[in-house]
Design a protein around this nucleic acid. Structure first.
Lengths: 226, 226
DNA sequence: TTAAATTGTAATATTTCTGTAACAAAAGAA
DNA sequence: TTCTTTTGTTACAGAAATATTACAATTTAA
């Protein structure tokens, strides 16, 4: 069971795109093109997550948010807000009125999907896959543990995130910039060479003697798993 | 054995939803769509708990309640009343006529489930799991006692709730925010560092020499049991 | 009411983690 | 080979997160 997602968004093309893709991912999806009706349908549908357009013809996103948060049955419904580019103040307002995350339009489905999983993982962990594995490596996001060949490995927080990142796309080569963007908290400035050091630390931790090296260096491109 | 639940409710869709979910949870469920018949069937069925709609076409919730309380065989049958939104006076009347709890429609199944467990825990402790255990730790929700290796341990109220929380999902790592949300009463603002102190107190209480530490610190993530 | 227990916070100590710089080693290029 | 570029390794100081302690305020019990 992947969970139920409700969409309130007035641009039919977006709804169609998102709904179709989410259903392909195994979610049960329902949607509404306007706010007032959407609210009613949503409460019947009882989703695990709401995708909410911030600019609707009838009701503003804030109003919907408030309404939802006031209803004891939906107080903790995770909400991801869809906002048009440049409406920076809206983001602030959104986060203040209890939105869990936001995605700026236009967005790629992959980006949205990642956000959805992240939000669901926090609010409703059973809905989302929590173990990442690759060969004899296993990372448990719930218990925050890492195993190589069934032996537990201790990692620092950054090494953990780094490995988690590689495990979401094994084999794929990531540049230092890509790694930096995803693994490090936003608006943090670190030397790109710093990654080398963390790679070293990660290697040191996950390598077992007689077992093959798991992190490959791709000269002038970056690193990848195996 | 999870116990038997009877439902008297005239909206077939609600009955279906609730009955289905309760059966999935292991309860034996029977139901009736109207009051007079429901009363008869109920007495044959001999449930451990009754879910009672307050607004029925034929008999009012109060009448049913009175009838039940007058019957010596069902004097102490726990009743949860289902009431439509805004019927505040009904709640008062309900509680006066011996209802144990009420749930406002529309409700989520999870909410109802929680209420049912809470009511059964009080009235019929054998039906509901009241002991949380993990390795040699045992927490008794009824008597509010905690044991480690069969030796009783004294905990303050907050430490008790904290441990109870960890025991509902052992091994899982919880962030300070999650702990705060669940363990502390709502809309109470406490410093997130305060949790560290309570963790310390809890550790101090449940740790026995020569026995392993039960609470794991996961740097930058939170805490978990073992 | 007094005494005891409980709570939250702030201050301090301790531990662990991070980023960087400096140098070594390796891989390409010429 | 020799030079250049890129990556590996190491050590270390400062930063960040957690542990511990003490204390005042509040609640509960006696």
């Amino acid at each position: 069971m992947k969970g139920k997602i409700f969409i309130i968004e007035d641009e039919a093309s977006i709804v169609q795109l998102v709904q179709h893709n989410l259903e392909k991912e195994g979610f049960v999806v329902s949607s509404s093109l306007n706010g007032n009706e959407g609210l009613k349908e949503l409460k019947k549908f009882e989703p695990n997550l709401l995708l909410l357009d911030w600019m609707l013809p009838d009701l503003s996103g804030i109003d919907i948010c408030k309404n939802i948060r006031r209803d004891s049955n939906f107080k903790s419904l995770p909400i991801i807000m869809l906002t048009a580019k440049g409406e920076e103040e809206d983001k602030v307002k959104g986060l203040e009125s209890g939105v869990d995350d936001y995605v700026t339009k236009p967005f790629s489905f992959n980006e949205l999907h990642a956000r959805i999983k992240a939000v669901l993982r926090r609010s409703d962990p059973n809905i989302v896959a929590n173990d990442l594995t690759f060969e004899d490596l296993k990372l448990d996001r719930i218990e925050k543990r890492v195993f190589r060949a069934d032996k537990e490995i201790q990692l620092g927080p950054t090494e953990f995130r780094l490995l988690e990142f590689f495990l979401t796309n094994p084999k794929r080569v990531y540049s230092r910039d890509q790694i930096l963007e995803t693994v490090w908290p936003n608006n943090v400035n670190v030397e790109s060479r710093t990654i080398d050091v963390h790679i070293r630390r990660l290697r040191q931790s996950i390598n077992i003697k007689d077992k093959k090296e798991l992190i490959r260096t791709v000269r002038s491109s970056g690193y990848s798993l195996v």
